[in-house]
Design a protein around this nucleic acid. Structure first.
Lengths: 208, 208, 208, 208
DNA sequence: AATGAATGAGTCTTCATTCAT
DNA sequence: GATGAATGAAGACTCATTCAT
């Protein structure tokens, strides 16, 4: 068989990536088997190697793809409005990504949390657009003095992302019971901005 | 060599556990090699099996030991005082555990985040004492109306632990640059109680 | 190498089975090494596992194959004629099997005699056709009163098979000196029917 | 601990031999574990090596002991009387050995049938006294013309022993159901002397 | 004499990867 | 381009054996 159209080739590649994401998410990098991935994508054993030069590269591509897709959706989130609204919109965008690409996101989370140095920085690099968007929103708020000033916006952005991830883990760990995905954006935002304490929140909602 | 004193045997076991924790932390369960662990503990290949019946059991014992040590230290944290003080004390206890048993804590974090169902529940079970302590502090505060009431204390406790873990991951991911470990307790507590928003914190400190 | 013809694949499998039979015959199940078998079949270490899922399965297939081949040849033995003639024909068929598949037969004998329960019943099950043929011949003779009646034909059939095996063991144990294989059928038959005593055999040799 | 009396030392050795026989009988040479044997004899792991220099030697001693005990009992069988009576007496002696030393006899049978050349000749060598006794009885009968003359007495003796073994295997294989041990001597003798044929000894050869 | 901790050769098995078809 | 047979490195685990105590 020869000469697939570029199109067909792309579709084959995507099938492989999807299967790989599913496997990596479920089993982790080491325990996932290339053969199984190939089979679940509908191919024979060796076929993955026509598209990816090694398991490592395949894994890297899954990460890259996951980030790319995420960024594409995030970038459509509004870049104006109140801080709270913008954060919630970004979080909602992230949740939407998660819904559409659950396996990919699980790989991302799983591997980000396992701090293999290579993987960790790989992921952070790819997440830059999201972090930048969050940082942007935070910086503006900081300039207006509506943000704690003991931490730089970049670090706060990272924490915000971390909160999202924590809620995802809870979601998966609880068997999708709590929190339900649609509550995640509001929950992440309010936890992030307001914390768990109370008295603090009395006149909070006045914020624009 | 026969007839080690019980003491010597315990020390050998600890060496193995320590080596295992280090390896599991660095490589993850799958990628860690039993042979390497044995070698790094100063033993020959098969010697681990004089102490643990399988890689799985070895791993389980690492988890158990990590939790046990953690709980021992946590339990010394004061169980009275203001919510903020108690949380900070618990966090400080946790950080102390981390300092003393960094590898063990990394295994805990890494595996808790990788949601292998078996491991996840294993860890949660062993962390119960810490979560209970946090829950206890939170419940009291909730009863006094000083806590957001849209989330049950147990879930908030889990989030608090999650915050700690996020900061640890940041710490490790940044090459121990930020946050430094001594800032973690305060940081986790204030982020958790007060959030990142600002105006919110004006009269906060009135809390007992 | 991909896409072997079914034929080539079958041949590879047979090479492995042959090598396995030889090894199992020489060393017994436990002492035989899968790696060695693979090597002696002309393959690399892991290749056996492309054809058999475990050492146990490989062993089982050797047994199954041995029995299958044996039965195929036995079934061509004539099912009529005098008892003596039929028994001798069956024995001759068995000896022919042994000639063609010596290693396989040795495995059969060796393992049948080692009464590992699993193996023992496995073998007996596969030998049923032979035992049935012998039983058939014996039953007829018994009906005609020409057989000792203190033992049921099935048990006598088992004894007949046992006699054959005894002679094989002698043959192998003596370094193929005595009895030579071509004498085995007559020897087994006459020992079985007539015993070693004499008076009994006075005019026996008149037989056709 | 030092200086066992020779007596105590002998007893320890016997315990080890008994445990070894049991294990070897049940599991075969390879699968039997030295540690288990030691434990079942009531000793710790390494202790076997104070009595036997290797697993191989331990095995050899089990064989040797089994034969020795057998021979001691056989030698008490009467050496006169009719051929039939003498054979039955020898068989009865053998059965008695089996009753008293079942494990040892099973090892003997199991290993004799597995034709590892070393083991096979080892066993035959040790069984010589029994074979000699049988041969002796047979020779006398042969001299009197009451035995088939196409086989030398030594080989017939071996066959007789083989018959016994076949019946033992049947006995063990059937879960001690058939044949019961007390029937074995008569059965072996009559099968050996008279065969399975019937009228046999009358006008047997009329068969077509 | 007995112990049992330590050893390390050797076993089965898995799986990423190659490459002839 | 796809296939899947073959490869062989690597890993978990077993167990006979040694020897300090």
């Amino acid at each position: 068989m020869a000469r697939l159209t570029a199109n067909a080739k792309t579709r084959a590649r995507e099938r492989l990536l999807q299967a790989a994401a599913t496997r990596f998410a479920a089993d982790g990098f080491e325990a996932a088997s290339v053969n199984t991935i190939s089979a679940e994508a509908g191919f024979a054993k060796g076929t993955v190697y026509n598209y990816f030069s090694s398991k490592d590269e395949l894994f890297g591509e899954v990460i890259r793809t996951a980030c790319e897709r995420a960024v594409r959706i995030w970038s459509q989130a509004p870049s104006s409005g109140s801080l709270r609204a913008r954060l919630e919109a970004l979080a909602a965008a992230d949740v939407q990504v998660l819904r559409e690409q659950e396996a990919f996101m699980q790989v991302l989370v799983r591997e980000a949390m396992s701090f293999r140095p290579q993987t960790y920085s790989l992921i952070l690099a790819h997440l830059a657009p999201f972090l930048d968007a969050v940082s942007g929103a935070l910086e503006q708020a900081a300039a207006e003095g509506r943000l704690r000033d003991d931490l730089p916006p970049e670090q706060l952005a990272l924490m915000f992302l971390g909160f999202l991830v924590l809620l995802y883990i809870q979601h998966w760990g609880s068997g999708s019971v709590w929190p339900p995905l649609d509550e995640v954006p509001a929950l992440a935002t309010t936890l992030f901005l307001d914390g768990a304490g109370r008295s603090s929140r009395d006149e909070r909602e006045i914020q624009p």
